[in-house]
Design a protein around this nucleic acid. Sequence first.
DNA 1: AAGTACTCCAACCGCGACGGA
DNA 2: TTCCGTCGCGGTTGGAGTACT
Length: 280
Amino acid sequence: MVRAPCFDKNGIKRGAWSEDEDNKLRSYIAIYGHSNWRELPKLAGLSRCGKSCRLRWMNYLRPNVKHGNFTKEEEDIIVALHNKYGNKWSTMASRLPGRSDNEIKNYWHTHLKNRVQKDQKTTVMIKNEQVITSSSSPETCYVVKEEQVTKAANPKQCPAVEKLNFKTQLQEVNILVQVLSSESPSSSSSSASESSPCSLSVSDHHDVLNDFAAPQICEPDENSWIEQFLLDNDSIITSSDNNYIFSPLGFTDDDDGITQQASFQDYIMDDELLWSTLDL
DNA sequence: AAGTACTCCAACCGCGACGGA
DNA sequence: TTCCGTCGCGGTTGGAGTACT
């Protein structure tokens, strides 16, 4: 499954790397590092170009590089990051420890792209009439249409319920926020809790829910599932230094005291808005 | 068993970004 | 400011392995 070794007109070897070449590169970098990729192959006794050495090191020989199957969690992270960044493979790789940009790119194209495209088709089909189910009572189905949430007369009218499941979307956001908050510039200099780069705060749930600015609900007494969901899922997230807070109310940056408040519908219905709100 | 089509991933290529002279 | 060398990124390709006919 690799290119057959060959030599170009300058005597530079190309194609698959041999065990011996790997060892040479590995041991050279272990001793001298890789400050100059161009000079490295000569010094290490390799008939390769610097670019090829760099690629081999970054994708395969580097310590802590994981090989083999991606976990379900890794898949979710990749999908979430791709939503946010598009084809920024190196950015995605920096948030997935042990995976190279090349590996993520390959995995996306061979495994995830088709799956996500399928999902998007389903979303487009019901673009103007989106559906949410309650996580606590799946038999209840809400239709969101132009700033209004109405309870569907018949849950069977909700053909794509799973694709737009509220819980699933927020879980995806939670994963992304955890990944992103771990590399937030301000969190690195934090003097606050050291325990986790991303901790959940439930202490403000009550206030948050009191302030909850939901759009017009046609049947206000029957939206209790929303509260129930919020309590069930600890969906208010703060980074360890409390600089960033993600909550159903908006994305808060305590540094300048600005709270960007988005509508309930924004968070649930519009991926673009949702990601742009998480502008880290 | 043999031929063909398809899958997957390591490696290559070209280009833009960046830093130093 | 411009030029040049190097690095890193993202798209593409080659070809071994596997599935299908």
